[in-house]
Amino acid sequence: MITAEYLNNFFLGYLPYVALTVLATGLIYRTIRRNNTIQASSSQFISNDKSLRWGSTLFHYAILLVLLGHILGLLTPE
């Protein structure tokens, strides 16, 4: 049982904070030191092909619907 508690604390307690710290550190580093590397060069690739434009649009709508579903699931009482 102690191993299960340790894994639970690690994955649900410590790991999210480690991941957020790495994310924030990387964003700050790229913004300050390598500002010219942050760009959306893939938009030129998508704009030349209509089927890719449709796929990209539908993908982003699906991601937003999944996010909305998770938020509604968290707000729903037991």
Rank of each mutant, 00 (worst) to 15 (best):
H60I: 02
I32N: 02
L64K: 06
L12E: 13
S42E: 07
L67G: 09
I32C: 07
T31R: 06
F45K: 05
L27T: 01
N8V: 02
D49R: 05
L64G: 10
S51H: 13
I32E: 07
T37R: 03
Q44Y: 09
L20V: 12
H60V: 05
A19M: 12
A24Y: 02
N8W: 10
R34K: 05
L7F: 00
G55N: 03
K50L: 02
L65D: 04
D49L: 08
A4N: 14
N36F: 12
I2N: 11
P16K: 03
L64W: 09
T37E: 08
G73F: 04
E5M: 15
A62S: 15
W54M: 12
G69V: 02
L68F: 08
Y17M: 07
L52K: 09
L20H: 06
N48C: 09
T25K: 10
P16Y: 03
S47Y: 09
N35C: 12
L7K: 08
L72K: 07
N9Y: 11
T3V: 15
L52T: 03
T76D: 00
V18C: 02
L7I: 06
R53N: 10
T3I: 14
N9C: 12
N8P: 07
L20G: 09
L23S: 00
I71N: 05
Y6H: 15
T21F: 06
K50I: 07
I38E: 01
A19F: 10
L52I: 06
R53L: 13
G55Q: 07
L20Y: 11
L52M: 11
T25H: 10
I38G: 04
R53Y: 10
E78M: 13
E5G: 14
L74K: 06
T31H: 04
G55C: 00
R53W: 11
R33K: 13
Y6R: 14
L67P: 05
Y14T: 15
Y17K: 03
D49P: 06
L65R: 01
